[in-house]
Design a protein around this nucleic acid. Structure first.
Lengths: 156, 156
DNA sequence: TATATATAGTTTGTATATGAACAATCAATA
DNA sequence: TATTGATTGTTCATATACAAACTATATATA
């Protein structure tokens, strides 16, 4: 029995609204756990995969991304990026290079090992995305996206 | 620029499907941060609020929930509940009591302080739920729930 | 009853995440 | 140019989360 199934709210707020919120939360939790499980055989976490994906698809000009850019793209605190990149650098998946244009900035780049690992991990992720989204028609997906964006737009 | 806006995938998987997944993830992240911010003035985290909510609405018979029940309801690891309840017990929000029927089990109950805090926190959460869901009609909400359940159902 | 198996909670090690305080550097402006 | 303010990354303290290994019980079954 999940929280959603268990929670019989008696007052305070609308049950269906609350259920919708819980569903968003639980879907994310489940997706993250599944992704984490898939990458585990590669010694990679889902968060680290996200970093590699961003470096792979978003590197421009300098061939990498600054920690500030990663922080912004991943919606996480700068301090978190420091320790995340520390671990990935220790595992030789990425390196920090100096930005010649700004001495405050680190440019994070994939190593050959990181690239190789990403090439193995990406099909696993693609498989998950395909499997999960298979049941949706294109317009249903767009509707889902729109609904979630609407939720996000009214949070603050 | 968010990951969603930035990521221009060139191959490997369908962009709209990927975007839908990212939206689920980012919506949860944003909701959690907002809830956390709301509860901060009360010295409460969103996870701790969830515990109090479950204890308030789900306590039956013994007047509390076992750590195993909390673990199952919150979809988190048992080990996580140990440290979570440690902190909440230290803050005098809950107490652990022995289950007379099973000596392995702890029954977690709210203290008077925990109940008082929950009474203050619940309206904040209700306000967030209402605000976020205001823009949806009842059938739209049900559609959103259904779509997310469908996603969850096809993860494994 | 004796043994095997399952369950409840804890501990340990590791990963992720935040906010606050800080040093170095950059940018704006007076 | 000198000062002020903003940005980048790090460190620290704290919270959340998992898996694996462990102890103490409970339950099933031989």
């Amino acid at each position: 029995m999940s929280l959603k199934e268990e929670l019989k709210l008696k007052k305070g707020f609308d049950l269906v609204e609350h259920e919708a919120l819980l569903n968003i939360y639980y879907t994310t939790t489940s997706l993250k756990k599944r992704a984490d499980g898939l990458f585990k055989t590669l010694g990679l976490t889902d968060v680290q995969f996200n970093v590699l994906m961003l470096l792979h698809y978003q590197s421009e000009g300098l061939g990498g991304l600054s920690q500030a850019q990663l922080s912004e793209m991943m919606l996480v605190n700068r301090a978190n990026i420091t320790t995340l990149i520390d671990r990935m650098e220790k595992a030789s998946l990425v390196i920090r290079e100096n930005d010649p244009a700004d001495r405050r900035t680190n440019i994070v780049k994939m190593t050959a090992k990181g690239k190789k690992l990403f090439a193995k991990a990406e099909p696993l992720y693609a498989g998950l995305v395909g499997k999960v989204m298979r049941g949706f028609k294109q317009n249903e997906l767009k509707q889902l996206i729109k609904a979630l964006e609407k939720v996000r737009g009214s949070i603050n």
